[in-house]
Each structure stands twice: as structure tokens, then as C-alpha cells.
């Protein structure tokens, strides 16, 4: 399986960090997912081969980490925190608003494949609550208006 040169460079550098190969597994899975879109069977098989592991050993690790997806998801992964600090400041209202706007629920995708919605646990934005992450980008001190702006700007980016 072919990864981009940039990712190959990253993988090679990772291996210089540890006394054992396997230590690179979690970062490799996440970085590969960033490039491929999800942790496909192919990705599992390739990484297993590179780290002298079985596919099963890799799958065993994949299933533990909540950021790793084994199936393709929408291009923009909208992750809304509804944990305590966010909940106290109206996160559920934000989450419901997005649900209605996109017409999808928790862990679902819009039919055009643009958005994936997830209700997530604390993302470390408690003092700027309510908050969400779109892929890796933080959006904080959310209001329903602010959420609309974010969704609108992502849509616009796609049609351009």
C-alpha cells in the first residue's frame, strides 16, 4: 500500500524514537487515518506488516481508541462535547441544533458525505464551553448562530 511521501517520512522518523517498533503503532494508525480517511483493512494489514504484528494485534488496538474509525465517515467530522462543563453552558442545545440542521444523529453522515456528527467526551475546552472540534479544529464559546456560520463556511468551501 502506498502512502504519501510526507507520511512515509513521518513513519520513518517515528521509528527513530523508540527501542521497539511497536511503539509507533498508535501514532501510525492515527496519521494513516488522517490521510486515507479511515483505518481500512488495507491500512491495518500494511501497518501490521511494517511493525511485525498480526492484523489481529493491530485491530485489537484500533478498537480501543475512540478517534480511530474502521469505516469511512463524512469529510468534516463534527465532534460536539456535551460533558459537564459544556453541558452546563448549553452544549445539548448546540448538539440538537446541529442534528436538526444536518438532519443526522450521533455517529451518522449526511448523504452527500460532507458531514459526520458525533457527540464526544471532554475535549479540553471546558473554560471556553460549549465547544466542538471539526476534524482537529477547535470552535469554542459556541452559540447556535456561531454553529451556523461554521457549517455555512464549510459548505461554501466545498462548492468553490
Amino acid at each position: 500500500m502506498q502512502f504519501s511521501d510526507q507520511l512515509e517520512k513521518r513513519f520513518a522518523e517515528l521509528q527513530t524514537h523508540y527501542p521497539i517498533k511497536r511503539s509507533a503503532l498508535v501514532p501510525m494508525l492515527l496519521y494513516a487515518q488522517d490521510e486515507v480517511g479511515h483505518v481500512s483493512d488495507e491500512v491495518v494489514h500494511e501497518i501490521a506488516a511494517r511493525l511485525d504484528l498480526t492484523d489481529l494485534e493491530v485491530r485489537n488496538v484500533v478498537s480501543y481508541y475512540s478517534m480511530l474509525h474502521t469505516k469511512p465517515i463524512g469529510k468534516y467530522n463534527i465532534q460536539v462535547c456535551t460533558n459537564i462543563s459544556c453541558m452546563l453552558r448549553g452544549a445539548e442545545k448546540v448538539f440538537d441544533h446541529i442534528r436538526q440542521r444536518l438532519g443526522i444523529g450521533h455517529k451518522q453522515d449526511t448523504p452527500d458525505g460532507l458531514f459526520h456528527l458525533e457527540e464526544v467526551e471532554c475535549i479540553g475546552a471546558c473554560c471556553w464551553a460549549p465547544a466542538m472540534q471539526v476534524n482537529y479544529t477547535y470552535h469554542e464559546n459556541l452559540t447556535t448562530e456561531k454553529v451556523d456560520e461554521v457549517l455555512e463556511s464549510l459548505r461554501k468551501k466545498e462548492t468553490q
Binding site: H17, Y18, V26, P27, L30, Y64, Y65, S66, M67, C122
Partner: peptide
């Protein structure tokens, strides 16, 4: 010294 990323786990 090296930096390591997790992948989502409290």
C-alpha cells in the same frame, strides 16, 4: 526527547 500522540482514550 520525542513527542507522542494518543488517539482518544481517557
Amino acid at each position: 526527547c520525542a513527542v507522542q500522540t494518543g488517539a482518544g482514550a481517557y
